[in-house]
Structures are given as C-alpha cells and as structure tokens.
Nucleic acid binder design. Structure first.
Lengths: 285, 285
DNA sequence: GCTCGTTCTTTGTCCGACAAACAGACTAAG
DNA sequence: CTTAGTCTGTTTGTCGGACAAAGAACGAGC
C-alpha cells in the first residue's frame, strides 16, 4: 500500500440503463480514519472515557501511515468525540454541549440575525423553560440560583455589569429542566441577545434593579413549584427586556451587534505565538 | 527551529511578586496553526469564500512543517470554518448550521433526553416559529411548502413513511422565520423527536392523514399571514403528536430511542474501506 | 515503604519523497 | 472557430523515517 488511495480511481464507469450519476466522491484516508474511530465510539466498542489506542497502534491496525492517522485524530478531536485528558492522552468522550453552543453562537453571530428574531425565539423558550424548571428543580440548582441572585444583588449595588450573571441565571433555569436539549436550544441565542443589556444599562436608570427583581420573582415561583407563575414572570421579564432595548434607542430590526473583538476565549494567552516569516508576503491567487 | 515547540518549555520560571499561576498549558503547534487561521477568518482578513493559501505556503508563513499545518487544517475543517469546494481546494466558510445541528443531535441522543423533555421544548418552539413564519414568509418558501405537502399526500396515500417529509415541513416553517437561530434551536430536538412517528404509525390508523390535515391547516394560516391561527394549529398538531405517542403505548418519560444503528449518513458508501490488519488484535491498557 | 534516577513509550515535529488530481496552456482535429 | 486531446506545473494525499521532550513504568537506594 503505497501512495494515493485507490479509492477514487475505479468504479465510476459502466453506465447502464437509467443512470443517475450522484456525484461520486472519494473520501481521503484521513477522513476514513476519522469515521472508523467515530464508529467505534458511536457503536459502543469504544466506550466514553476509554483511552484511545496509541497513534502507532491505530496506524498499524488501520493500515495507514501515522501522519494520516494523526490527521484523522484531529478531526475526531475537533468533533468532540475525543478529548485530551491530563494533557496528552486522547480519550473517547461525548461532545461537550457548551462547546457545541459556542460554535453555534459563532455561526449565528456571523449570519446577521436580527434582535427581534432572537428575541422572539427566547420569548418562546424561556417562559416554557421556567415552567418546566418549576416542575423539576432540585436542591442543588436552587442553591446555585440563590448564589447567583446574591451575586447579582451585589453587582447591582456596586454598579457593576450584570450581564454575565444574567446569562448564568437563565442558563441555570434551563439546566433545572433536567434536559440537555433546553440548554442546547437556547444557549447560542441567549449568549447573543442578553449581552445587549450591557449597552442598555448606561442609558436606562434602575434597569439593574428591575432585572434583579424579575429574577427574584422567577426564582420564587420556580422554587415554589409554581410553573404557571414562573412562566408568567419570565415572560414579563423578557418583554421588559425588549421594551428597555427600544427605550434605550436601539432598533430591534437591526442585526444584533457583531460582538466586537473575540475577547480571550480559549487559549488566547498562547505562550509562543506563531508569527509570519519575514520572507515572502503572501498573495493567494 | 527543530523538534518540539519551544512554546511550553521555557517561560514558566521567574516567580515574581504576586504570582497567580493560572495553569499554563502549551498548545501544540498544530492547534496554534488552527487558531491562527481561525483568527484570520473571524477577523475578516480572510473573507468567507476566499481560497485558503496552499499548505506549503501556510507552512512557510507560519514557520512550521507542512504536516503540522495539515493537522491544523483538519481542525479548521472540522470546525466548519474551512470547506472543500470542487473536491480539493479549501475555502474559508461559515460553519453550516445543518452540520452543527447534526452534531448537537448526536450529543443529545447520547445524553438520554426524555420524550417529554423534547416534546415540551418543541411545544414551546414550533407554535412560535409558525407565528413568526406567518409574518415573514416569502414566495419561495411557500412553494417549497406546497411541494412538501404534495409529496406528503402522495406518501400517505401510498402508505409510505412520512417521517422525512414531516421533518422537512417543520424545518421549512422554521426557515420561513428568516432567522437561522430558529433552525439551530429546534433542529436537533426535532430530528430526535419526530421520528417517533415512525414507530407510532403502525399502531395508529389514519395517523398519516391526521398529520397531513394538520400540516395543511398550518400552511394555510401561514400563507394567509395569520400568525395567531398558525400558532394555534401548530400547537394542536404538537399536542396531537404526544397524544398519539401515549395512545400507541409508549411512555413519554422514557429516554427517547437511541436511534438504533447509524443508518447510512454521510460517506457510508466509502469505496476502499479501511480494514483492520490481521496481525495483532488490539488491547489497550 | 517511599523517593529518585533510569529506561521505555508516546506524542509532537520535522525532513523528504512521490503519485494522482487538477488547472491551464497549447495543439490537433472537426 | 469550437471541441477534444496532450503536456506541464501546482497542490494535495500519503508514505517512509527520525528525533526531542514529556510521561509512565520500574528498579535501586535510603
């Protein structure tokens, strides 16, 4: 087995009767590697948490070169099905939902969704989430919400930003539903919409206090198991949010802000930044 | 520059005054490559649709070996920011939402969400989507919906499965809202929930006909711009769905079906399947 | 029994090479 | 002049092999 995959070459000929010709595409070997391992995980032969075989072993078993294997592993890694633990080893893992929503959020922010589009979505989701949360909430989440409220109170009093705490509050409510689907559904939009608060705050007096009151009402209803109340308060809260946005002079039909510069997400404080070489200055085309 | 990145090695020493020690982690060079290119795209220096420089050029400019560059490119590829067009070349691109939701769906299906959890979510989303769709729908989507209804009618008459068409109908409604956020929010859950139809159908007479009628009502309202009507019909449709599920004898508190075997998704018809070598039979740890 | 240095493994990178696919330029045929 | 075929340079996909550093495993010494 040497050089190019014999994958794509043969097999396309022999046009019989009703030829359909659905664009044949030969996957490169590194992608086959990816799918092969993916399969092992999805079909349970490699369980979540299991260590993957070493690169050399994989290369050997799959009959490809180690470099090729590594490329496949990168795909696997980025797909969330393999994860580095303690630095080096790769372990089979479930795609992390926060990772997924982060990506979704990025996709959204690049696709010019309007404030109102997001708002309508969350207006549908959040009240329903609150209602379900009221049915299912557990002690742990109650404690987390209480802590969140306390910190929010502090922040409001000190005049600090409450955006992060706001996001967290709503995320906790979603978590309280006990189903990952909720979190996944709302997170990207929420992460894009709620930070608008940041821009409203300077223009609206006591908006922080209003937010805190609203959160408290919602929390009380949720803790009391009052689904209907939780839903109602949440809806009011969301409506109030939009009202504030308009009042502050923003246009809800505009695409939501481009989020500005990518502020220090993951690994931004990289030690040795790769620099372009002085030599040639690119030009691709 | 040879061998290991000097990234992680040096630089950790020199403990001055108030040392904080925030877990330094040296990203391997291939990840730095990934982030470097990612940045170029996110910050607009590489615009969506632009061809990426060739691997050799990238390697040269970033000062790493081509193999390393390729690993970084695989990460980029899987993250959705680079895409193959016409087979080979890589182009900067936006993460495709259907790709994202596919992954989200997989994550969900592995995390044991209950039927009811999903159902509650969609019961909140779908009616709201229909309402918004009624406000914003355009001719093109109307045509697509009409085509969908026609095919659904055929399928019902012929007794074929309508699951795919059902999914498509709802996705089209979501698309009609004009905001990608809706699609992203509902797709994973919908893809997991609606196929339950498949299992109900054999146990419930005329359920296909009911579905068709419901879709028609929703469509009529949407086309007429009747948001309230669309919302009402959709809600009924969703409620009906759950009723059928229970009636058919399934327990809505159970985790939704594990989707069974991964039926021929992408690239399953791979030409040269990679096989394990006869030699050693793995055993890791 | 626990710590320390020594070996073995595994990952991260690099070097170099080459076949096949592709894009173009050019040429022969209709 | 258009169409089909040929040649050529570029780019990707893979492969072979090498080596440093980080961890892990292991045995010697306190």
């Amino acid at each position: 087995m040497d050089g190019t995959a014999e994958a794509g070459a043969g097999g396309a000929a022999r046009e019989g009767a009703a030829a359909v010709f659905s664009a044949i595409e030969a996957a490169p070997a590194y992608r086959l590697v990816f799918h092969a391992i993916e399969r092992e995980i999805l079909e349970g032969r490699l369980r979540i948490g299991d260590r993957l075989p070493t690169e050399t072993e994989l290369a050997h078993r799959l009959g490809v070169h180690r470099s090729t294997t590594r490329e496949g592993l990168r795909l696997l890694e980025q797909s969330g099905l393999a994860e580095r633990r303690e630095g080096r080893r790769l372990y089979a893992s479930l795609p992390r939902t926060d990772d997924l929503s982060e990506r979704a959020q990025r996709a959204l922010s690049l696709s010019r969704v309007s404030f109102d589009g997001l708002w309508r979505l969350l207006r549908a989701l959040e009240p329903a989430a609150a209602a379900l949360a009221a049915e299912r909430i557990d002690a742990e989440t109650i404690a987390a919400l209480e802590a969140n409220l306390a910190r929010t109170a502090d922040a409001v009093e000190a005049g600090r930003s409450v955006t992060q705490l706001d996001l967290e509050f709503h995320a906790l409510i979603a978590d309280a539903t006990g189903d990952a689907a909720w979190r996944l559904a709302r997170e990207p939009s929420a992460a894009l919409l709620f930070p608008a608060n940041e821009r409203m705050l300077p223009r609206l007096a006591q908006s922080g206090a209003r937010l805190l009151t609203a959160h408290r009402n919602i929390f009380d209803a949720v803790r009391a198991g009052d689904g209907e109340g939780a839903e109602r308060w949440m809806r009011r809260h969301i409506d109030d949010f939009r009202r504030g946005y308009v009042l502050a002079g923003f246009d809800p039909d505009e695409p939501v802000s481009p989020v500005g510069a990518p502020e220090s997400g993951d690994e931004t404080r990289r030690p040795g930044r790769i620099e372009a070489r002085p030599g040639e200055q690119g030009g691709d085309g």
